[in-house]
């Protein structure tokens, strides 16, 4: 781990990201959605979290996936791997950039949709863990993509499952199998936010945060494991 290398990768990726409009325009998607939701006058937690959960997938996971896929597409990853920079440096540099972009987007979405959470600290922890989780999801997705085009296809099921997954719980009364959707990180963060609005107990807070934490640990462990396996050649 070397700070100057991570910084070089961070700056390089920031310039590449900001000049690649095909990818950076995705940042606007949750913001526009939050703005429209605000204008239509919704005021329940479920609706507030749609643009936020969309920001997690269409910005955090998608941008991370694209940044790595583009390195593969342009053959630059091989040059990077031959340089003194390690895979860890490369991923950390990118993840830091994606984390910053996501944090700004999510906060702007919350502001635009007009949501005022009951407890900023507890929700902040959950948002932080979520961004780390979706960054890992994007990194994992990049393992199976070689071009930006493929990345934008891979991201579709992720958006469907994780951003719109919470709506599946509504259908769970008719189809009991869909009760599993309750344990998605995107559903858990909504449950957390709902309990923050009323008087909450310790377990109301701990269960969602622990669930998101477990998702994060699992996704990063499997990502690191698969990268070690696949990147050897």
């Amino acid at each position: 781990m070397n700070f100057s290398r991570i910084q070089a990768i961070f700056i390089k990726d920031y310039k590449e990201f900001s000049r690649n409009y095909a990818v950076s325009i995705m940042v606007l998607l949750p913001l526009i959605m939050a703005f429209i939701y605000n204008k239509t006058g919704v005021n329940n937690i479920q609706a507030y979290f749609l643009p936020i959960n969309l920001a997690f997938t269409s910005v955090t996971a998608f941008v991370q996936c694209c940044l790595i896929a583009e390195e593969k597409e342009r053959n630059t990853l091989r040059s990077l791997m031959l340089s003194p920079a390690t895979l860890f440096d490369i991923l950390l540099g990118k993840s830091l950039l994606v984390f910053s972009i996501s944090a700004v987007t999510v906060l702007l979405s919350i502001f635009l949709v007009g949501y005022n959470p009951g407890n900023w600290l507890i929700l902040g922890i959950a948002l932080f863990l979520s961004i780390v989780f979706y960054t890992g999801l994007g990194t994992l997705g990049a393992l199976f993509t070689k071009t930006i085009l493929e990345a934008s296809v891979v991201i579709l099921p992720i958006i469907l499952l994780f951003s719109f997954g919470p709506f599946l719980t509504v259908l769970a009364e008719n189809i009991p199998v869909l009760k599993v959707a309750e344990w998605l990180p995107s559903t858990q963060i909504i449950l957390l936010a709902e309990s923050l609005e009323v008087s909450y107990t310790l377990s109301d807070v701990l269960i969602p945060i622990m669930t998101i934490l477990i998702w994060t640990i699992i996704i990063w462990l499997s990502t690191i494991f698969l990268y070690k396996k696949r990147m050897v050649d």
């Binding site: 290398r5 700056i11 310039k15 590449e16």
Partner: peptide
Amino acid sequence: SGLYQRLTINEYINFVKGIY
């Protein structure tokens, strides 16, 4: 070996210097 298409020459040199 691929190059980062959207960087300028100066930025690219800075990047390579950072890496090495």
